[in-house]
Simulated assay, not measured.
Amino acid sequence: MKKLLLFTLSSIILSCSSENSDNDSPSAGDGSKIKTIKKISSGVTEETTTYEYNSEGNVSSMTFTNIYGESIETTYEYDSENIMVSFTEVELDAWGDTRTEIDYLEYENDLVVKICQDISYSDDLPEVDRIEFEYDDSTQNVSLFRHFYYEDAEFSDCDDVDNISNTETMEFDSNGNMTRYENSDYFWSPTYLTYSYDDKNHPLKNVKPDYFRKLLGASSNNNINAASEYNSDTDELTGTISYEYTYNNSGYPTVMERTYMTEGGSISQSLRYEYTYY
C-alpha cells in the first residue's frame, strides 16, 4: 500500500512541475572532492546526496533525501589509526518509521572482505545480514558482492547467516573502470550491462578511504560514456544508455545527462545529475 501511494504521489508532483529554481547549473569551479549529487527528472530534483569529511580527508557522513519525504543519515566511525571500523545508517520513511543499520567491517590485507549488518526497525523484527567481497587480482577492485540475510534474527549473529539473497559480479579494465556488471536479483529478466569510458575524472574519484569507495561500486576512475544492456540468457541487446557531461576546470563533471532507451526505441527515460565539489 505504501509503495502504491508513493508512486501516485510522485506522478502528481512530476506532472504538475515544469521548473525548479534549484536546478540551475552548478558552478564550474576547480573543486575535486564531491559535496552534493542531485538526481533530476522532468525538471524536479528527486534526490540529493551530501558528503562531509573529517580532518583526515575521509568521509565522515553522507545524507540522502528525496521528494517523498524519505531520508538516510549515514555516519562513519574510525579507530585511532583512522581505519573505518563501522558505519550507521538511519533511514526514515515518509510515515515516520525508522530502519537503523549498523555495519561492522572486517579486513584482510587492507581490503574489506566482510560486512556484518545489525538491522532494527521501529515497526518490525530485527535482522542480521552479511555481505562478502571478492576482489579482482590485477586492479584490486571488488569483483563479487555476495549478499546473505536472516530475518527475525534477534538471537543470531553474523556467522549464522546462510541464506543467500543475491550476488553482484563485476569486471574491470586495466584503468580500474568497471566494464561489465551483473546482478542475480533482477525482477523481470536476467540482465547484464557493459560500459565504455571517457578520460575525465569520476565524481567520486576522491572519496576516501579508497577501500570504502570500492564498496560503493564507485571504484571507476573515469566516467561512463556509453552502456549496453543485455539479456543474460540469450546475450540479446535489450537497451542502450547514452551519457553527456559538462566538466569543471579540474576535469570533474558538474552535469551529467543520462538517457536510457530500449532496443527498438519503444521506451526511453532521461535523467539529469548535478554535482558540486569542495
Rank of each mutant, 00 (worst) to 15 (best):
V44M: 08
V44W: 05
V44G: 03
T45D: 03
T45N: 08
T45C: 05
T45W: 01
E46W: 13
E47M: 13
E47G: 07
T48Q: 12
T49I: 15
T50H: 02
E52L: 07
Y53F: 15
Y53C: 06
Y53V: 08
Y53D: 08
E56R: 15
E56S: 15
E56C: 12
N58H: 12
N58T: 09
N58F: 13
V59A: 10
S60A: 10
S61E: 09
T63R: 06
T63M: 09
F64S: 10
F64Y: 14
F64E: 10
F64K: 08
T65F: 00
T65G: 01
N66L: 08
I67K: 04
I67N: 03
I67T: 04
Y68I: 11
E70K: 11
E70W: 05
S71W: 03
S71V: 02
S71D: 02
I72M: 09
I72E: 09
E73F: 02
E73S: 04
E73P: 01
T74K: 13
T74Y: 05
T74V: 10
T75I: 08
Y78D: 03
D79K: 01
S80G: 01
E81C: 01
E81V: 03
N82E: 11
N82Y: 07
N82F: 05
I83F: 07
I83S: 09
M84I: 07
V85H: 08
V85R: 09
S86Q: 04
F87P: 02
T88S: 13
E89F: 00
E91C: 05
E91H: 13
L92F: 10
D93Y: 00
D93H: 02
D93E: 01
A94M: 11
G96Q: 00
D97N: 11
T100C: 05
E101W: 09
E101V: 10
E101H: 10
E101T: 12
D103I: 05
Y104M: 11
L105T: 00
Y107E: 04
E108K: 10
E108M: 04
N109Q: 15
N109H: 11
N109V: 13
N109M: 12
D110H: 15
D110Q: 15
L111Y: 13
L111N: 15
V113M: 13
V113C: 10
C116M: 10
Q117N: 14
I119S: 00
S120H: 02
Y121I: 03
Y121V: 06
S122P: 04
D124N: 15
L125W: 11
E127H: 07
E127Y: 09
E127Q: 14
V128T: 11
V128D: 04
R130G: 00
E132R: 14
F133L: 08
F133A: 03
F133T: 03
D136V: 05
D136A: 04
T139G: 07
Q140N: 14
N141M: 12
V142Y: 05
S143N: 09
S143M: 01
